[in-house]
Nucleic acid binder design. Structure first.
Length: 667
DNA sequence: ACGGCTTTTACC
DNA sequence: TGGTAAAAG
């Protein structure tokens, strides 16, 4: 599964930042009176008090563990404060945590290449920053070292008591005769300490961090001293750190592979792993995994920090355990509608905030068939081109489900045989940026498609929102229209047979932010409450978009798209997909919401990163309606590009070949 | 009758 | 590719 990456010759400085019991901190910030109390976040579940998904350190002290039930936690720690995860549409709603995670990322991304590894974890490549610091203001030259940096844990350093300890840390950081690698790490210590302080100051969240020469070691280190501390792994400490470390503790070895190492080869620690030759490991696990294992046993891992601040996919799912398993199509449809609605809302936010569109919709389900030995046959996943619009997503998801169900039940859907659905999820992937740059494409769509909203009248509509979940401050707001829209297309529907072939043709390309209005397909555009459904997008954010004042009627382009998507039949010949590849430059008309800094970071980060994406065919009739200028721009975007992916080969010349379409951003 | 729910990655 | 499995938090 893992794949070998040779370590680059030059020493890097990598940090892994891990938020401390993140969900708990988010809830404690919301309810400061919970601070310092033993607290846990539970996921809604009548059953035995719900499941814990985050536990504060105070609660851990009394023996409360994640994956206890609420009841058990109460038993172990009677004074524990249990906070429920917000619920929307009958399922857990993690949006507040996602937003909080974004706040953190937007701060951490300021100092180097940044990868959002999960909702509460980030990798940073601080090599450049550390090198600059070493050149300009090396630690040894500093008058004083930050207190936070002095609290660092340095592996391999003997820990003395009290003040002596900080003194030895200071000595280590400032050592003049140190190895260059150590000096770089010393800079990393100072930088990370400053970053963590910054995060605390701006978000009120504490975090822990690991600092090392690669991701693997940084990740290992970040977990060694929690909460709110940082740990460094000097090169000289690697051997000792790894030799006694149980293999199961290493990332990627926590599952079956790690178990296989133990049971098949008798390997319990990384030290044991060290005894095996590369070829031996390759014999057992294949060339890639074998090499990878051999490398990590030596602390070698060249895996790069991906400069990615935004998720690559969005999904919404729910399980229906045991007796709650779904057994009727209409029940399945109901839940698919809920899930699709949530997904659409998130796609809408992504479009609005990040100018990205997703192009693939995937349905996953798990099922069993009672009264059959073969009852655990896998329920197949199915995907199709993603069409924007809640009802479209709902429709497509349901069609995908039915297609999968037929496959699952066999060609001659054995009459009388009964199925049960124990899990459903819909997800959107293949997300690409909408190129905008200096281009007027975005602006054009923006002015054409924006919907009447709260203009000068004091934003009345904006406040007619209902907050289904614990929404406040940074959480999400949902318009009443959205909810109303969700009521249509329910159980009374006729169940058309899935037609995958057709689905595949129904590709829609709606590259526009405010096309998010299409996501609520209430038929009356005049009464739409506006486009601000997006997470965290408050009206302050809309400053740049005054175009909304005009175009009070049905915007023509929206009309076009609407008709277009509504009548897939009329769709015309499909041409070959074109691939665009370019150095992205985009206009900066992003809002001044608290998210904008993240977005801008992301833009900045991708400045020289090549992006490439596919555009499905655009209906000629739609295309023809666009102004000539826009058509030209689209055509230039649609120019095919050879080296689509061409592996990880770095900054290949591709950027320059199209550079004149998208002049690079000024640094 | 499962801890839910998300997301990423590698493989065929 | 699309679909699957593993892994992680």
């Amino acid at each position: 599964m893992p794949v070998a990456r040779p370590e680059t010759s030059d020493a890097r400085v990598i940090a892994h930042v891990d938020m401390d019991c993140f969900y708990v901190q988010v809830e404690q910030r919301k309810q400061p009176e919970l601070r310092g109390l033993p607290t846990a976040v539970v996921q809604y579940n009548e059953w035995q008090g719900g499941g814990l998904i985050a536990v504060s350190y105070e609660a851990r002290k009394c023996g409360v563990k994640r994956s206890m039930r609420g009841d058990e936690a109460k038993a172990a720690c009677p004074e524990i404060q249990l906070v429920q995860v917000p619920v929307a549409r009958g399922k857990a709603d993690l949006n507040t945590y996602r937003s909080a995670g974004s706040e953190v990322v937007s701060i951490l991304a300021l100092s180097g290449k940044c990868e959002r590894a999960s909702i509460d974890e980030v990798y940073l490549d601080l090599t450049d920053a550390a090198e600059s610091m070493l050149a300009d203001a090396p630690p040894e030259s500093l008058e004083s070292i930050d207190e936070e940096a002095l609290k660092s844990h340095i592996l391999g350093m003997r820990r003395e008591d009290g003040d002596d300890f900080k003194e030895s840390v200071r000595d280590w950081i400032c050592r003049k005769d140190a190895d260059r690698r150590d000096k770089l790490l010393a800079c990393g210590i100072i930088i990370v300490a400053a970053l963590r302080k910054q995060v605390l100051k701006e978000t009120e969240f504490s975090c822990s961090a690991g600092i090392a020469h690669n991701k693997m070691l940084a990740k290992l280190a970040s977990g060694m001293n929690k909460p709110a501390q940082q740990t460094v792994v000097p090169y000289s400490a690697v051997q000792e750190l790894l030799s006694s470390l149980p293999v199961k503790k290493m990332k990627q070895l926590g599952g079956k592979l790690g178990t296989s190492l133990q049971t098949d080869l008798g390997i319990d620690t990384v030290g044991d792993l060290l005894q095996f030759s590369e070829t031996k490991l390759q014999e057992h696990y294949g060339i890639n995994t074998g090499t990878w294992l051999w490398n990590i046993a030596r602390g070698i891992s060249g895996e790069e920090v991906q400069g990615r601040l935004l998720p690559k996919s969005h999904g919404s799912g729910k399980t229906f355990p045991g007796p709650r398993a779904l057994k009727s199509l209409s029940n399945v449809q109901h839940w698919l509608n809920q899930l699709s609605e949530e997904l659409s809302e998130r796609l809408s936010s992504d479009l609005e905030q990040n100018k990205r569109i997703a192009s693939t919709l995937t349905l996953h389900a798990s099922a069993f068939r009672s009264r059959d030995s073969d009852s655990h046959k896998k329920f197949p996943s199915k995907s199709c081109p993603l069409r924007y619009g809640v009802t479209k997503v709902q429709e497509d998801a349901f069609n995908l489900f039915q297609a999968a169900l037929r496959e699952y039940m066999g060609p001659f859907g054995n009459k009388q045989e009964t199925w049960r659905i124990t899990g459903l999820s819909v997800s959107a992937s293949k997300i690409v940026d909408i190129p905008s740059g200096t281009s007027s494409i975005m602006r054009y769509f923006q002015s054409q498609s924006t919907v009447p909203s709260c203009s000068a009248d004091g934003c009345v509509q904006e406040h007619i929102v209902n907050a289904p979940s614990a929404s406040e401050g940074c959480s999400e707001q949902r318009s009443v229209e959205t909810q109303a829209a969700s009521l249509e297309g329910d159980t009374g529907a006729t169940y058309t047979l899935p037609d995958l072939d057709n689905l595949h043709k129904n590709i829609d390309l709606i590259p526009e932010k405010d096309m998010s209005c299409l996501l609520n397909e209430t038929t009356d555009f005049q009464t739409q409450s506006g486009s601000n459904k997006g997470t965290q997008t408050k009206r302050i954010g809309r400053k740049t978009n005054n175009a909304k004042e005009k175009n009070q009627g049905m915007p023509s382009i929206v009309d076009i798209f609407k008709n277009y998507t509504a009548t897939p039949q009329s769709k015309q010949e499909t041409r070959e997909d074109s691939t665009v590849s370019s150095t992205s430059k985009r206009a900066n008309f992003s809002s001044r919401s608290s998210h904008s800094s993240e977005v801008n970071q992301e833009v900045e980060e991708r400045r020289e990163t090549e992006w490439s994406y596919k555009i499905g065919e655009i209906d000629q009739s739609v295309f023809d309606e666009l102004p000539a200028e826009i058509q030209r721009e689209f055509r230039s975007l649609l120019r095919p590009n050879k080296q689509l992916k061409a592996g990880k080969s770095k900054g290949d010349g591709s950027a320059s070949s199209i550079a004149h379409y998208f002049p690079p951003l000024n640094r």
